[in-house]
Simulated assay, not measured.
Amino acid sequence: MEGKKHRPVMSVVAVVALFVFVVFSVVFGQSQVSLTNTAKAENKKLVTIFSDGNKKTVPTDAKTIGEALKLNGIKLEKGDVVEPVAETLLDQPFYNINVYRAFPSLVVDGDKKTTVLSGYRSPRQVVAAAGLKVYDEDKVSLDRSDNFVFDGVVGQRIKIDRATPVDIQIGTRIFEFRTWKKTVGEVLQEKGFSVNESDLAGLSLNDPIYKDMNIKILKLVSDIIQIREAVEPEVQYKDDPTKPTSFRLTEDPGKPGEKVISFTVNRKGDVELSRQKLEEKVTIPAKPKIVVRGTKYDAIGDNAQLLLKLRTCETGGRYNANTGNGYFGAYQFSQATWNRWNTGYARADLAPPEVQDTYVLKNAKASKGGFWSQHPGCSVKLGLPKFPF
Score class of each variant (00 low, 15 high):
35 L>D: 06
278 L>A: 04
357 D>H: 13
340 R>L: 11
135 Y>W: 09
324 G>E: 09
328 F>A: 03
183 T>L: 03
153 V>P: 15
48 T>N: 14
140 V>L: 03
389 F>M: 07
194 S>G: 00
102 A>S: 15
305 Q>P: 00
123 P>A: 01
239 D>G: 01
71 L>N: 14
329 G>D: 02
339 N>P: 01
378 C>G: 15
276 Q>E: 13
9 V>F: 12
39 A>N: 02
362 K>P: 04
351 A>N: 05
183 T>Y: 01
123 P>D: 15
270 D>Y: 12
119 G>P: 14
170 I>G: 01
40 K>W: 02
230 A>S: 15
355 V>K: 01
36 T>P: 00
78 K>R: 10
385 P>V: 04
191 K>N: 05
56 K>S: 15
374 Q>D: 11
38 T>V: 08
313 C>T: 13
208 P>R: 10
345 Y>E: 09
30 Q>Y: 06
61 D>T: 11
383 G>L: 04
308 L>S: 12
194 S>R: 03
263 F>L: 02
128 A>M: 00
145 S>W: 09
220 L>D: 05
251 E>G: 08
74 I>L: 04
359 Y>G: 07
245 T>C: 08
203 L>M: 10
35 L>K: 05
249 L>S: 14
387 F>D: 06
38 T>C: 06
61 D>A: 15
77 E>I: 00
322 N>V: 14
38 T>Y: 11
381 K>G: 11
375 H>E: 15
149 V>T: 15
55 K>W: 07
36 T>H: 13
20 V>Q: 02
114 T>N: 10
287 K>T: 08
334 S>R: 00
288 P>K: 10
132 L>N: 04
158 I>A: 03
284 I>Q: 10
197 E>F: 07
162 R>S: 08
105 S>K: 08
283 T>A: 05
379 S>A: 08
287 K>E: 14
184 V>G: 02
204 S>M: 06
331 Y>W: 04
225 I>N: 07
15 V>L: 13
138 D>P: 11
96 N>A: 08
